[in-house]
Design a protein around this nucleic acid. Structure first.
Lengths: 247, 247
DNA sequence: GAAGGCCATACTATCGATATTATATCCAGT
DNA sequence: ACTGGATATAATATCGATAGTATGGCCTTC
């Protein structure tokens, strides 16, 4: 009844996920990261319920889950809203990311294995292709972002610490919000690619210190690019004090 | 402001919370950390609902929230259960904690202010008292744990990075689970107190490197104590493979 | 004309019941 | 006996409705 819309292939066990909560959770997450829902925007249950054609409880649980990702903030008796963004938060986030990303990378390298390196090479190559394509095809941004995420995941993947990886991923997701906000069209692609390459090579060479230092720079610069670019957008931030319309 | 839930107000942080979900959330969290609910134990909604005299939705949301703390794990169509514990996880957790605790402490010291130091002194003094009391009053363990938490919170409190503090707190909470599991009766109290004192003095002296190094040792040793003590309990862990009865 | 309290309105929190899905049980077929 | 599968059972996911709270506007009062 409810999933009649995407029915059709009997063999396929559900495209996105079995449970409605989960698919709504994912969709909302996407919208928040993509900036479709703006920071501090109110997320009214009734409104979303109607949009998704599900019951309020379902939306409610999806929102509660988003709270774990710190993408949504709940206030008692005042419902849910998109977690705010600010330059201060970006600064903070970047600092924390550097700690986790670099630690995880060092750890990865110190446990280096054939298998990990193979995967890292693959991720790097895909990213390289995506970065080349991006030079003349601005529409492939989506793909690039995915490859970028996979590459950074791959760098950390070999760390034995699930906790480091888990927390790292949480922060990375947060940083994606900021990256989207500042449509980083103006970024000098070449530089970013050079940074990725340098990190990759240091990692493959098992030079943990060098790799970590390069990664530190990389994360830091990316944040700077966002900050500068978002200088324009900051107006938007300040403007959001006047509570953006929810409808 | 918004996360004042477990802040250092010793007077009243209580059940009187406006919403039912929240009070059940807290109670469940307490039970899990205290080990009343064992690792991997199934948390059946219907059973809890009856116990708390509330509706299933309420319990469900409380459980979903616990997922953020990684105290509860949800599997699709298979409900919720207490997140497993293992020696491997303790190892991992300790490593990650060291990174965050030490970074936060360094950061705290580098921004040192009068006010912070005052608060740190107070927390240290309370902890000292609690540790003395603990020598002849084993029942005051509860209090000690609270003071210990406050002291470590205070060490990190002056860091400007909300993210570091947030993640640090998450991991600290996790470590409390392990501390409880191994009723650390046998711990040589004197040593622990000496470690606390040394960290405190280095922090007050603004010797960030020394303080961080001492804290590293402290966290590491605490984990070792737990591991050794829990060697006995490990049987329990292995035994849990045979899924503990959920009633 | 401004401060303060009261009511209508809009949501949220909570409920109890139903639809779905997994797990355990039991029976046939080899 | 043992595997395979149909059915009963137990829990979960989802629903739709109601009880409870905050918020903003309106009216009274000074």
């Amino acid at each position: 009844m409810m999933d009649a819309d995407r029915a059709g292939s009997p063999d396929q066990t559900e495209t996105s996920s079995g449970t409605a909560i989960d698919s709504i959770y994912r969709e909302l997450r996407r919208r928040i990261i993509d900036g479709i829902y703006l920071p501090e925007q109110k997320l009214k249950i009734e409104h979303l319920r109607a949009g998704f054609q599900v019951s309020s409880s379902t939306v409610r649980e999806a929102l509660t889950r988003l709270t774990s990702d710190h993408l949504v903030t709940a206030e008692e008796h005042r419902g849910f809203r998109v977690t705010p963004m600010s330059m201060a938060d970006l600064e903070d986030l970047t600092q924390a990311r550097i700690v986790l990303e670099c630690t995880a990378l060092r750890d990865s390298i110190s446990h280096a294995t054939e298998d990990w390196e193979r995967k890292l090479v693959r991720a790097y190559q895909r990213l390289t292709r995506a970065e080349n394509r991006l030079l003349h095809d601005a529409a492939s941004f989506e793909t690039w972002e995915e490859c970028n995420r996979d590459f950074h995941d791959a760098l950390a993947a070999n760390s034995h610490s699930m906790w480091l990886k888990r927390l790292r991923q949480l922060l990375f997701q947060q940083s994606e919000r900021y990256r989207r906000l500042s449509s980083l069209v103006a970024t000098s692609r070449a530089e970013v690619h050079a940074e990725h390459m340098a990190i990759f090579e240091a990692a493959i060479a098992h030079d943990a210190e060098r790799a970590a230092a390069l990664l530190l720079d990389h994360v830091w610069r990316a944040a700077n690019v966002i900050r500068d670019n978002a200088a324009l957008r900051e107006a938007l931030e300040k403007g959001s004090k006047r509570r953006p319309c929810s409808k």
